[in-house]
C-alpha cells in the first residue's frame, strides 16, 4: 500500500445517514490461499447511494456476498439489524439484489417470473411491476432465452423495483449492456425507485457511469476499506489543480497524492486536505472525478 492510501485509510469511516443499514466490524473472510476481507470496518446509512469501488480481487464481491448471506465469514456484520448468516430468508424480504444481467433463469416466461415472485415475496407489488413492464416491449409469454441482454435487465429491474425493499445491492448491474440500456437503467432507479427510506449499494467497473448518482464512496483495496466518504466530504477533502510547467516544483512541495501529465506541458496534481488558498495560487482548482481519485488511491495495486 502506498503512503497516500495509508493516510486516507486512517480517516474514520462514517458516511452520513440517519439509520444504519449495514454495519461491519472486523469483517474477515479467508479462502484457502487468499484473504478476501481483512478485518474490514464500514457503515452504510439509510437513504444513501453507495459506490463500493475497488480493483479486481480487492474483496468487493466477497463483501457483497457476506452482506447477502451467501458466504460465511468471521467478524461482525449486521444488515438491517440482522445476521445474514442465520437470518437470510427474513433478511431477503427487505434486501434485493441484481448480480449481473444474465442471472434470470433462461426457461422462465415473463408471466411466470411475476407470478412466482408475487407468490413468494410479501413485499412485491404486482401492479407496479406490470406498470414498469408496460413501458417495455416485453410480452407476457416471452421466455428469457428469447430476450436480448437489455430486455432481460428490463425484466429484472421491473421485478426488483416493484419490491418494497430497504436495501438494493447491485453487483456490476450493467455489465455487457449497450449504452442506451445503461443510461436507462440508472435513470429508472433514480426516478421510480430511490427515496430516503431506501439504500442502494453498487459495485461497478464503470465508475464514470455511476459517479453522478452516488452519495457515498467506499474504496476497497486488499480486503480493507481505503476510503469511506460522502461525495460532499470527498469534494471538500480532495482537490485537483492544473499546474503550468513553471510551478511544478511548488506544486510538488505541497505533498500531492498523485501527479499526471496533461496537455500543453501542464500537469495535474491531486491533493488530500490541502489548503485551498495555496492551491488556488498554483492554477485552476476543481473537484477530482471519482475515477481519477480511485486511480490515485489504488496506485501500486497492480505493481
Amino acid at each position: 500500500m502506498n503512503v497516500a492510501a495509508e493516510a486516507i485509510a486512517e480517516q474514520p469511516a462514517h458516511p452520513a445517514g440517519s439509520e444504519t443499514v449495514v454495519q461491519a466490524h472486523g469483517l474477515t473472510k479467508r479462502y484457502k490461499n487468499a484473504v478476501a476481507l481483512d478485518g474490514t470496518d464500514f457503515r452504510i446509512g439509510q437513504g444513501r447511494i453507495v459506490g463500493l469501488i475497488g480493483p479486481n480481487g480487492a474483496g468487493k464481491t466477497t463483501a457483497l456476498k457476506a452482506i447477502l448471506g451467501l458466504t460465511d465469514f468471521e467478524g461482525e456484520l449486521a444488515v438491517l439489524g440482522m445476521d445474514p448468516r442465520r437470518q437470510r430468508p427474513q433478511l431477503m424480504r427487505e434486501v434485493c439484489f441484481i448480480a449481473d444481467v444474465a442471472t434470470l433463469p433462461r426457461w422462465i416466461r415473463v408471466q411466470e417470473a411475476i407470478d412466482f415472485v408475487a407468490g413468494v415475496h410479501p413485499r412485491f407489488d404486482r401492479a407496479k411491476c406490470e406498470r414498469f413492464l408496460a413501458r417495455t416491449k416485453l410480452r407476457a409469454n416471452q421466455k428469457v432465452r428469447e430476450m436480448s441482454k437489455g430486455m432481460i435487465v428490463q425484466l429484472h429491474l421491473a421485478i426488483v423495483m416493484a419490491i418494497d425493499a430497504r436495501l438494493l445491492v447491485l453487483d456490476e448491474p450493467t455489465l455487457g449492456l449497450d449504452i442506451l440500456y445503461r443510461k436507462q437503467f440508472y435513470q429508472s432507479l433514480l426516478e421510480d425507485y430511490f427515496d430516503e427510506n431506501k439504500t442502494i449499494l453498487i459495485t461497478t467497473h464503470q465508475v464514470e457511469e455511476v459517479e453522478h448518482i452516488l452519495t457515498d464512496l467506499l474504496f476497497i483495496r486488499d480486503g480493507k476499506i481505503a476510503l469511506s466518504a460522502t461525495m460532499d466530504e470527498m469534494g471538500a477533502r480532495f482537490a485537483e489543480v492544473l499546474v503550468g510547467a513553471g510551478q511544478v516544483a511548488a506544486a510538488r512541495a505541497l505533498n500531492p497524492i498523485d501527479e499526471r501529465a496533461a496537455v500543453f506541458g501542464k500537469s495535474i496534481f491531486l491533493y488530500d486536505s490541502a489548503d485551498p488558498e495555496q492551491l488556488a495560487q498554483l492554477g485552476e482548482v476543481k473537484r477530482p472525478s471519482v475515477s481519477d481519485l480511485f486511480v490515485a488511491i489504488m496506485k501500486g495495486t497492480y505493481a
Binding site: 451467501l70 444474465a102 442471472t103 433463469p105 415472485v117 413468494v120
Partner: peptide, 17 residues
C-alpha cells in the same frame, strides 16, 4: 443447473429458505 447458469443468484435473491 442453476449453479451452472448462475440463475441461483436470482433464486437466492428471494425470501425463500
Amino acid at each position: 443447473d442453476d449453479r451452472r447458469d448462475r440463475s441461483i443468484l436470482f433464486w437466492k435473491s428471494l425470501p425463500v429458505s
